[in-house]
């Protein structure tokens, strides 16, 4: 079988999905099921506490009521962190909450684009690798930064295809191709996917996997889109392994030239 292998752990699905923005947790659970994903990302946030004097109602539903940790591998992320310090603290908390040492590392550098802060990302990667974390950094589609992250001990590199939640698809195909050449660790295209063909393209370019949230959660029918993404990732992977034909400017026949009627 063709498995995704990150830091010695194997996954039969090359699709990683998020847990945010769903209209309801039940829809999320069905979309996860349809996606075939085995790894899901979760955010780490302060618990909601009752206000003083406010009666405690029914126990608030927890995300984990809808994700079976025996079935899905939880990947805590440091989403929303703007400094290396914040990201490192959040990663440590995520490790304790989830009891695994994996982290999707994000250090955001700009609010409008949500582009990563490369310098802080590298700093945080080095710190967390030293502490024994399996670090999966969300990064710019910059081959040099990806190479530096690999050198710093990242277990994978996760370049964006386009800004988070933009649905623009892979904006710089050639950079993804170069990153593939530059790095030996798994390459996961993280962010920017809008529809199935974007995911297929990422895989055709040689990515080892695709991570997405909004493209599924924000679709009119998230469950159907989750299945489309599963098939697209699989199709793109198969096409990559199969080896595509070279592009040519002019036509080449695919039927024999001999034996034509009337000649």
């Amino acid at each position: 079988m063709d498995h995704l292998n990150i830091a010695g752990k194997t996954f039969s699905s090359r699709l990683i999905v998020g847990t945010g923005k769903y209209s309801s947790p039940a829809v999320m659970a069905r979309a996860h099921e349809a996606s075939g994903a085995e790894m899901v990302t979760v955010a780490v946030r302060r618990v909601k506490l009752p206000r003083p004097g406010e009666p405690r109602g029914e126990r608030e539903e927890s995300l984990l009521d809808y994700i079976d940790p025996a079935r899905y591998f939880l990947l805590p992320n440091t989403a929303g962190c703007y400094t290396a310090d914040e990201a490192v603290r959040t990663a440590r908390l995520g490790r304790e909450a989830g009891l695994s040492n994996w982290v999707k590392l994000e250090v955001i550098g700009d609010e409008r684009t949500l582009f990563p802060d490369n310098e802080a990302l590298l700093d945080a990667t080095r710190t967390l690798v030293k502490e024994g974390f399996v670090v999966l950094p969300y990064t710019n589609d910059d081959p040099v930064v990806c190479r530096k992250l690999e050198d710093a001990g990242a277990a994978a590199v996760m370049p964006l295809g386009a800004p988070i939640g933009s649905g623009l698809g892979i904006q710089n195909v050639n950079n993804i191709r170069i990153i593939r050449e530059f790095t030996k660790v798994p390459l996961i295209v993280d962010a920017g996917v809008g529809t199935a063909s974007d995911a297929a393209l990422a895989m055709e370019l040689g990515a080892d996997g695709v991570l997405m949230n909004t493209a599924i959660a924000g679709a009119q029918d998230p469950v159907a889109m989750a299945e489309a993404m599963k098939l697209a990732v699989r199709a793109g992977r198969l096409a990559h392994l199969a080896g595509r034909i070279p592009r040519r400017l002019y036509a080449t026949t695919s039927s024999p030239l001999e034996g034509l009627v009337g000649r």
């Binding site: 847990t19 923005k21 979760v42 302060r46 927890s62 992320n77 989403a79 304790e96």
Partner: peptide, 26 residues
């Protein structure tokens, strides 16, 4: 977690309690 029974919170301490919530990126 193994230390929750023994670590004592005292006057002036700062405590953060977090859990997992839905999220993909940022």
């Amino acid at each position: 977690r193994a230390t929750y029974d023994t670590v004592e919170i005292r006057d002036g301490d700062q405590v953060e309690i977090v859990n997992f919530v839905g999220g993909g990126s940022a």
